[in-house]
Amino acid sequence: MKDHEQRYLELLAKDGTDPTDTYRKALFYLFSGNLEIYNKIDFLYDFKSRSIEFESFEKNDFSNSIKHMIELGFNLYNGYPSADPATLFSGLDHENSKLCLEAIQVRFDLG
């Protein structure tokens, strides 16, 4: 089974993400770190047009915590409205909270 880093690198390669594109890197970091999200990547991101699939996201039935994580990924990518931090983190376990914080670090190149 692939680990987070392998899934992340796979998504970057599939997209052809530029190494300086912290917007997409943050999105893929977050999405590759959660298996439920990763397994639905083709409903969330169109690799051919290199864009987010908002309509597919809105049609899928995700738990609130997963929905908030996806919204955060979209927000880090293009400013899509997401839950406020208190709402976002209140529903997450330790691992997903850590993943969200790490994705924010990737986006703002704080690592």
Score class of each variant (00 low, 15 high):
1 M>S: 12
1 M>P: 15
1 M>N: 11
2 K>W: 06
3 D>N: 15
4 H>L: 11
5 E>H: 06
6 Q>G: 10
6 Q>R: 15
7 R>N: 14
10 E>S: 04
11 L>F: 03
13 A>V: 10
15 D>V: 04
16 G>M: 00
16 G>W: 00
16 G>C: 01
17 T>V: 12
17 T>Q: 00
18 D>L: 15
18 D>W: 02
19 P>V: 01
21 D>I: 04
23 Y>E: 09
24 R>A: 09
24 R>N: 07
25 K>G: 05
26 A>K: 01
27 L>N: 15
27 L>E: 07
28 F>L: 11
28 F>Y: 07
29 Y>G: 05
29 Y>N: 06
32 S>R: 03
32 S>E: 10
32 S>G: 10
33 G>C: 10
33 G>N: 14
34 N>D: 15
35 L>M: 09
36 E>W: 02
37 I>F: 03
37 I>P: 10
38 Y>N: 09
40 K>E: 10
41 I>K: 14
41 I>S: 08
42 D>H: 13
43 F>H: 07
46 D>L: 01
47 F>M: 08
47 F>Q: 12
49 S>V: 01
49 S>W: 08
51 S>L: 11
51 S>Q: 15
51 S>D: 12
52 I>Y: 02
53 E>A: 06
54 F>L: 15
54 F>N: 12
55 E>R: 11
55 E>A: 10
57 F>K: 06
58 E>A: 07
58 E>Y: 12
58 E>D: 10
61 D>G: 05
62 F>V: 08
62 F>C: 12
63 S>H: 07
63 S>V: 04
66 I>G: 05
68 H>D: 13
68 H>L: 01
69 M>V: 06
69 M>F: 02
71 E>Q: 14
71 E>W: 02
72 L>K: 15
72 L>W: 07
73 G>Q: 10
75 N>V: 05
76 L>M: 08
77 Y>K: 05
77 Y>L: 13
77 Y>Q: 14
80 Y>F: 13
81 P>I: 00
82 S>H: 15
83 A>T: 03
83 A>G: 09
84 D>P: 03
85 P>V: 00
85 P>A: 03
86 A>I: 03
86 A>L: 13
87 T>F: 03
88 L>Q: 00
89 F>N: 12
89 F>R: 11
89 F>P: 01
89 F>A: 02
91 G>N: 00
92 L>N: 03
93 D>F: 05
93 D>S: 05
94 H>F: 04
94 H>G: 07
95 E>W: 12
97 S>P: 04
99 L>F: 00
100 C>E: 09
100 C>A: 12
104 I>N: 05
104 I>H: 02
106 V>A: 06
108 F>G: 07
109 D>R: 07
109 D>Y: 07
110 L>H: 05
111 G>N: 13
111 G>M: 09
